[in-house]
Design a binder for these strands. Structure first.
Lengths: 267, 267
DNA sequence: CGCCGCATTGACGTTCGTCAAGTCTAGTGG
DNA sequence: CCACTAGACTTGACGAACGTCAATGCGGCG
């Protein structure tokens, strides 16, 4: 039943979220020949500004110094490490988490292809959280000095950097609303809707997804214990809202999920 | 017992958090004569970059277009409004809050003199939260276009803007940790320590403070109901950790509060 | 002086966490 | 190929923490 869940819409031969845009497919056939460059990256619309002139596009390529592969379970950076770079995720899936001094930790986000991590390091020139790969991943390394330099000259880049940071602030506002005022079912429903929406924007199914994280990691993100996450999944299955088989999830009734997150008062 | 609580260290005649730096006191005697300018603002080290050359300092003045007074209870901006400006708080105290569609709302932060609000509006060019004055307040209006323009030319300003946004991201990470993994006592202890630390940085007492917000607003911020906030205050009083009289709070045992937030495992 | 919003306190209910037992699955090594 | 194992997941019983509801107190403002 779930056999096809890992292979959405298009025919990627792995389950890593590779993005859309059929246009550049021809180039992708010789991956070793690709220049490390944003100008021919099919994730460009996700992590770089739109509407650049060709000459600006050329300059933008300079923000990426190199690429780096991270094995599943390895860290891209750690709390306390000196901050040098932002990272644009090319493939793979990350979590970021902060820890309190007494050992508790909290997942602060899950990041997928086209998203930027490392913004936490700018203030104090040291990272304040860990970024851990939840599956084998590759990132573009973007030295922050270069970003600042270039964004002084390319207005669209400057604006873009500001928007990325603002977007992260707004996202975290939403998580605070979730953590501060929602019950378990609402949290999980909101989580699933958010994930599937972001995957859909990358060319995946609107109704099926494969979770890259454990129940415990979901729980940490949502401020719940893993047992509660598990029970809530089971509840959704009973109610016929989703099918769940381990990490494979199929959403049967999106409207019902939305209704759980945002109960309409009907009277 | 609390009569002097509203008047910490120095002799401000109101209880609005006016900042330190005795240097500029003379100028303050003729408030109507002050030019709208950062270069002679005693909050400068809080909201503007340090180590500017005189000529840069002069240019920085241009980011502030005007000032605006906001009455207690009034909004500086609202969810959905078009974004134009960032605001630096000169005097007064704000809360920011987001709302879900079904009416629940969540306080996402409390802001005091020298802090910047409005960053949420950058992504979509519309604000996504409300900023409400909890006491009569005054802000510096800083058109974001000008900020971007100037920060292309003044590197220190560019860096500063990035740091302010990154700081907000890191702060929200901390709130997520609090909301996701702490119990009521830990949350309230962390909240009090954070408030008093920020007030202290502005020249106020390390041990006394006047809360500008209701129990309900504290509860919303901390993901608790107002009754739980009230009970937790009472618990702290019983334990001899604080004295509380309405919104006046005196911290008797800072170490105990820290211990509550970060219980040390002693074995 | 009386009203109203805010705060406190108590009794009770719900939700979620804790602890524990048991199942499933993917990966490993014979 | 299959048995074994470790880690992830599920499920149940119980209890603690916090929410809900309601009564009461307090203080500031008109």
């Amino acid at each position: 039943m779930f056999d096809q869940a890992t292979k959405p819409n298009h025919t990627s031969h792995t389950h890593t979220p590779i993005a859309i845009k059929p246009a550049a497919d021809a180039v992708d056939m010789h991956p070793q020949a690709i220049k490390v460059a944003c100008s021919n990256c099919n994730l460009r619309e996700l992590c770089m500004p739109l509407g650049l002139s060709p000459v600006e596009l050329d300059r933008i390529d300079d923000v990426v110094a190199s690429r780096r592969k991270i094995k599943r379970g390895a860290t891209l950076f750690r709390n306390g490490e000196k901050f040098h770079n932002l990272y644009a995720i090319r493939t793979g899936f990350f979590k970021t988490c902060v820890a309190s001094e007494d050992g508790r930790d909290q997942v602060t986000g899950f990041q997928m292809a086209g998203e930027i991590v490392g913004l936490d390091g700018i203030v104090n020139e040291h990272h304040t959280c860990d970024a851990v790969a939840l599956e084998d991943a590759e990132v573009c390394v973007m030295p922050f000095d270069r970003i600042e330099e270039l964004s002084r000259e390319v207005n669209a880049l400057q604006r873009h950097v500001h928007k990325i940071m603002s977007r992260e602030i707004v996202r975290e506002n939403g998580v605070m609303l979730l953590l501060g005022s929602m019950r378990a079912e609402e949290r999980l429903a909101a989580f699933l809707l958010n994930l599937v929406q972001r995957l859909h924007a990358r060319g995946f199914s609107q109704s099926e997804l494969v979770l890259r994280m454990t129940r415990e990691e979901i729980g940490s993100y949502l401020g719940l214990k893993l047992e509660t996450v598990s029970r809530t999944f089971s509840k959704f299955v009973e109610d016929g809202i989703v099918e769940v088989k381990q990490r494979h999830v199929r959403i049967l009734n999106t409207e019902a999920l939305k209704e759980i997150v945002n109960p309409k008062v009907c009277d």
